[in-house]
């Protein structure tokens, strides 16, 4: 009975959100698009990082690739196919990153993702200068802002639904076991690398799609715009503040922080990133449990995975 009520309420909220563009001015809709984008980004980020403890600093690498794929293919392919191409590009990058780092301790993954956006930005820049000969691209598409909004809303709803399903599935249990103790997880028959890789790929594809769907908003795009590191940073802050291991956590973090960031960037454009940084440090200090409760356990197990089990036994050197 209770769950039926929750479902009805969710459908009503979704319907109300879907109807929002009919009652809004351009500015309000623009705000809503940005908000929905970050809700999806933070939720998708948390789907992997919040559940495995591998902190990804590369959100914008995937986001930017999605945007760039749209810029590159919007005039040669029909729109749905453009999205497919973007998703595949994000998937390919996720597999490269995941296969090379997810078998190792979390810190290698953090380091790898830390420079990844910069690497992709340089590669795209290099390609554009040396192969296509121009740096910027224009995106002329007849998609109105309300269509972009609806796509993002659908993507956000899908992300939350997928997360909800995963949390209740065997995969969800596997993730919780891995977060608690990787050694036990492996001894129960869980394939650690494949589980993490699958989740990372899923999360990355969603993030790529957010970038792809939002791309037409820019009309002009160049690497410095598409690969703006602030996107990675904001996503991380929102998800962590809200609680990255819970279904609704990232949403709860994204809504107030997005509005705050909008206000900050409108009123303090020059000091924006200083304020962001200070705010983030404050969050790390003020809500440590909200931030690390889950992530922490992961790194502990990770360290254990580094040292073989034998070390705790029999007084080995």
């Amino acid at each position: 009975m209770k769950s039926a009520f929750v479902w009805v309420a969710l459908v009503l909220v979704l319907a109300a959100l879907a109807a929002a563009p009919f009652f809004m001015q351009a500015y309000g809709l623009g705000l809503l698009i940005g908000l929905m984008g970050y809700v999806t980004l933070a939720s998708a980020w948390a789907l992997f990082s919040g559940r495995t403890g591998y902190i990804s600093l590369a959100t914008v690498a995937f986001f930017g690739i999605g945007a760039y794929m749209v810029a590159a293919f919007n005039e040669v392919l029909p729109y749905p196919l453009v999205l497919v191409v973007a998703a595949l590009a994000g998937l390919a990058l996720a597999l490269v990153v995941g296969l090379s780092t997810l078998r190792l301790a979390g810190v290698y993954f953090v380091i790898f993702t830390f420079g990844l956006a910069e690497l992709v930005r340089q590669l795209v820049t290099w390609y554009e200068i040396n192969v296509t000969g121009t740096l910027g691209r224009y995106i002329f598409m007849s998609l109105g802002p309300e269509h972009i909004y609806w796509q993002l809303l659908a993507l956000a709803a899908a992300t939350l639904f997928i997360t909800w399903r995963i949390d209740r599935s065997r995969l969800g249990l596997a993730l919780r076991v891995i977060a608690d103790d990787e050694v036990v997880a492996a001894h129960l028959g869980i394939n650690l690398a494949r589980t993490k890789l699958a989740l990372f790929a899923l999360s990355s594809v969603i993030i790529t799609l957010v970038g792809a769907v939002q791309a037409p908003r820019w009309t002009y795009i160049e690497p410095a715009i598409a690969f703006n590191p602030t996107v990675s940073f904001l996503t991380l802050v929102m998800a962590l503040l809200g609680g990255a291991s819970r279904l609704w956590g990232p949403v709860l973090g994204a809504v107030p922080l997005f509005l705050l960031f909008e206000w900050l960037s409108a009123n303090f454009p020059n000091h924006y990133s200083i304020l962001l940084g200070l705010l983030f440090i404050a969050i790390v200090f003020a809500v440590p449990k909200g931030i690390v409760a889950l992530v922490e356990t992961r790194f502990r197990t990770n360290e254990r995975a580094f040292r073989p089990v034998a070390m705790e036994a029999e007084g080995k050197p």
């Binding site: 919780r176 076991v177 977060a179 608690d180 103790d181 050694v183 036990v184 356990t297 705790e312 036994a313």
Partner: peptide, 8 residues
């Protein structure tokens, strides 16, 4: 050393 899954 017994290894439980403490959060479960």
């Amino acid at each position: 050393l017994v290894r439980i899954l403490p959060s479960l």
